[in-house]
Design a protein around this nucleic acid. Structure first.
Lengths: 109, 109
DNA sequence: TTCACTATTCAGCGTTACTATGTACCAGTA
DNA sequence: TACTGGTACATAGTAACGCTGAATAGTGAA
């Protein structure tokens, strides 16, 4: 992936994952695959796992170990109340940014 | 400023500054003031100057020293051809991100 | 001469995503 | 049995970027 995307993902990827989890519980491998499907072609697995550990430590998600038919047990994450709050805060910040940038884009050309 | 914004600005702030410079040449102090006006309330001065040094070293801007009436000489930056290219690339990346997030936002609730 | 505003610079830090690698579990197959 | 490939998670080390905090320097007004 371009370096540009990499930098832009900082702070955003967390919101993306929280948004995914707000729809349904999911586990790391699944999330990674989904992101790649969506065009985040070279998202590193390690990145997602590290992020999940982070948001778990911050208490934004609940975790449940679920046995898998095809490999080691899955760690299924689901958004809890605190996570939902954090997600809303993320959307507010995101909106602020997009508004500023939209203005710039229009005015700038 | 919230930590969330701080992280989200990574990669984005550069695009913002390039977009500003695409409209008109500007110098660091001016850019910082403008950003604060636009709601990036706690943008650190050091941040903008460091960014300007970076994009100058990458050859995205041309620099001219202009004497100021009210202080030390200003370093006025203007976007060159390479910078314009980079800015377009930034908009493409930004569009990609916003599209993904817009989808998530709609589907997620 | 002191203060406030303008203007730039830099060292050190924390956070985040990437790279690279390792572990482990299971199914199919030769 | 041994090998391969897909599933699933974990982590140490690195680079990039924005922030903190402070220093430096020029100008004009109190």
């Amino acid at each position: 992936m371009g370096k540009q995307v990499t930098e832009m993902l900082k702070g955003t990827l967390e919101g993306i994952v929280l948004a995914i989890l707000s729809g349904r519980p999911a586990y790391g491998y699944e999330i990674t695959a989904w992101l790649r499907d969506q065009g985040f072609s070279d998202i590193a697995e390690g990145t997602v796992y590290a992020l999940l550990v982070r948001i778990e430590q911050r208490g934004l998600v609940d975790v449940e170990k679920v046995p898998s038919e095809k490999g080691p047990p899955r760690k299924v994450y689901s958004l809890n109340a605190q996570g939902r709050e954090h997600l809303e805060e993320f959307w507010r910040t995101w909106s602020f940014l997009t508004e500023r940038l939209e203005q710039l884009r229009e005015g700038g050309n």
